[in-house]
């Protein structure tokens, strides 16, 4: 058995209507303890109404490189943006 408790990543929903956002990490013996620790550590001043905890080892991440070819598919598709289209100035509500 490992000496150390596993690492968990903590995500908080600040209030209804917002996404859960990553706020940091903590160590806990299991997911249930991670939740109570996350409450004590990250919501001492009502910073959250909902918490997710995920074992750090279970997170699959892309390469940290922003210029990675992984993101290339969207690089040359300017037509995905509304500003790509020329429309006469006098057309209302568009």
């Amino acid at each position: 058995m490992a000496e150390e408790w596993p690492l968990f990543e903590v995500f908080l929903r600040g209030r209804r209507g917002l996404n859960h956002v990553h706020v940091g990490s903590l160590r806990a013996a299991d997911a249930r303890m991670a939740l109570t620790h996350a409450r004590d550590l990250y919501t001492r001043r009502n910073e959250g109404v909902s918490i997710w905890v995920v074992r750090s080892a279970d997170v699959t991440a892309s390469s940290p490189d922003e210029r990675d070819p992984f993101f290339e598919p969207s690089g040359d598709k300017v037509y995905r943006h509304p500003t790509f289209y020329d429309i006469p100035d006098d057309v209302p509500h568009i």
Partner: peptide
């Protein structure tokens, strides 16, 4: 104890 408890519950 917390580690042992987690191990027994299969986490």
């Amino acid at each position: 104890a917390a580690r042992a408890h987690a191990a027994r519950r299969g986490e």
